[in-house]
């Protein structure tokens, strides 16, 4: 049956599917940052998308410094490998430090405040990040150097797989596997899961909850940094508004999978990516956003805790 549907949708179907999978993996990386922070301190970190944007700008700046890109972001053809390596190391560090700093400076004093307070502060941080992005790179979209070539590796197939697709898969999948292993098997990962379940009980068991929260923000930020580099190299453009749109899709992905749930974020990210690309392909680019949010609303109505989220009972 799947075959017949695929034939009806035409030969582009698999190409859309591939593009959706690749984009979805990028959304998943960002969604992980949302979902981990939400899982531990129940904060919708509105600034996360803009952190991603600053990460992309930082990577672009590195590319210019290394000499792999000119001032307009066009690839110069020099030291591409060096630039990619530097970006993949430095951008996550940058985003992680920034995220931890924001947590310390802004969210930490509000831990015991009503839930609206950190949420509103996160919106404030998002505004500041966006403004910083405008000062940094201006209001127009820039090129992000195409350091990974876009050559078609499979000219004989109906699906064109490029180096860029491979790069996304080769970076994102190991990162996610690593994260899963980290959360499952290390002491800090265990502490994270415990804190997510019940912060008070975790503290009583001798877990340093503050350290766990810092680690969560650091990991979430680093994932956003990786996503920013890979997204830039894949899409080849960057602009100060990219964080809003991408962040929103990633957050939708986190909720779709069940917020606070790590495999859920990955699943949600891939689904959102595929829906987005199929929607763009068959319905039209201008209906992409309404489509994604309509699906989100329908899912929330029928399964309010997401696909993989556990059903929770209201406590009295």
């Amino acid at each position: 049956m799947f075959e017949s549907i695929a034939t009806a949708l035409g030969p582009e179907f698999y190409q859309y599917l591939l593009a959706g999978l690749v984009t979805g993996l990028l959304y998943a990386l960002i969604a992980l940052g949302y979902t981990m922070v939400y899982g531990i301190i129940e904060l919708i970190n509105f600034a996360h998308g803009d952190l991603f944007m600053l990460g992309a700008f930082f990577a672009l700046q590195l590319g210019i410094w290394v000499g792999a890109a000119d001032a307009k972001g066009q690839a110069t053809g020099q030291s591409a490998i060096l630039a990619v390596a530097v970006m993949l190391v430095a951008a996550p560090v940058f985003c992680a430090s920034l995220n931890v700093f924001v947590d310390r400076a802004v969210y930490k004093p509000l831990r015991t405040a009503p839930k609206l307070a950190p949420l509103v502060s996160a919106i404030g941080v998002s505004f500041i990040f966006m403004n910083a992005g405008v000062f940094w790179m201006g209001t127009y979209d820039l090129n992000f150097p195409a350091l990974v070539p876009n050559t078609n590796l499979t000219p004989d197939w109906t699906v064109a797989i490029t180096y860029q697709h491979l790069m996304v898969l080769l970076v994102t999948i190991p990162v996610m596997v690593g994260l899963t292993l980290f959360v499952r098997y290390t002491a800090l990962g265990k502490a994270m899961r415990a804190t997510a379940q019940n912060p008070t009980a975790a503290q009583l068991m001798g877990i340093n909850v503050d350290r766990v929260i810092t680690a969560t923000f650091a990991i979430g930020g680093a994932l956003a940094g990786v996503a920013a580099v890979v997204y830039g190299l894949y899409v080849n453009s960057a602009g100060y508004q990219m964080g809003f749109q991408t962040g929103l899709f990633a957050f939708t992905a986190a909720v779709l999978g069940g917020i606070g749930n790590i495999p859920g974020a990955v699943l949600g990210g891939i689904l959102i990516g595929i829906i987005e690309k199929l929607g763009t392909g068959y319905v039209g680019d201008q209906w992409r956003q309404p489509l994604i949010f309509a699906i989100l609303i329908v899912i929330l109505i029928f399964r309010p805790n997401g696909i993989l989220g556990a059903r929770t009972r209201e406590k009295v």
Binding site: L110, G124, F127, N131
Partner: peptide
Amino acid sequence: SGWRLCIFGVALILMMRFRP
């Protein structure tokens, strides 16, 4: 006008911190 968002952001954060 270039500082618009920044000023809003700082105002929100300070309000939440000191006079929620």
